[in-house]
């Protein structure tokens, strides 16, 4: 767990965020902020120290913090975890199809 800044990618699934503000308030380096819809968004990704607080304390599993330098399968992982945009669709972030 490197404490250097700017080593991570922070992603927020807007569809799952309820805007409770835990991540925004308790982030030690002010990475996140509210957008105009009242949900969390990433403002200063370069400030992230990868403490992982927001990831484990998000009640809605909406935050993903990943190291940048794991180049191998990182892109695929984040792509496969994207939540479908259509709200009525059953949420299926992983690529494994559920019949």
């Amino acid at each position: 767990m490197a404490k250097k800044k700017g080593q991570t990618i922070v992603k927020i699934y807007q569809d799952w965020c309820k805007g409770c503000g835990i991540c925004v308030t308790f982030c030690p380096s002010g990475v996140l902020r509210f957008n105009n819809q009242g949900k969390a968004e990433v403002a200063h990704e370069e400030e992230c120290i990868n403490c992982g607080f927001c990831e484990v304390h998000c009640p809605d599993f909406a935050i993903l913090v990943q190291p940048k330098n794991e180049t191998g399968s990182r892109k695929n992982q984040t792509e496969s975890m994207k939540v479908p945009a259509s709200a009525e669709d059953s949420m299926n972030p992983s690529n494994e199809e559920i019949s």
């Binding site: 403490c51 990831e55 935050i63 059953s90 992983s94």
Partner: peptide, 20 residues
């Protein structure tokens, strides 16, 4: 610290309505 959320998603029932 990564993959924590990924891990949780593997255990969820994705046929249910999310967010919870």
């Amino acid at each position: 610290m990564a993959k924590v959320t990924q891990l949780i998603h593997n255990y969820l029932r994705h046929t249910k309505k999310f967010p919870h």
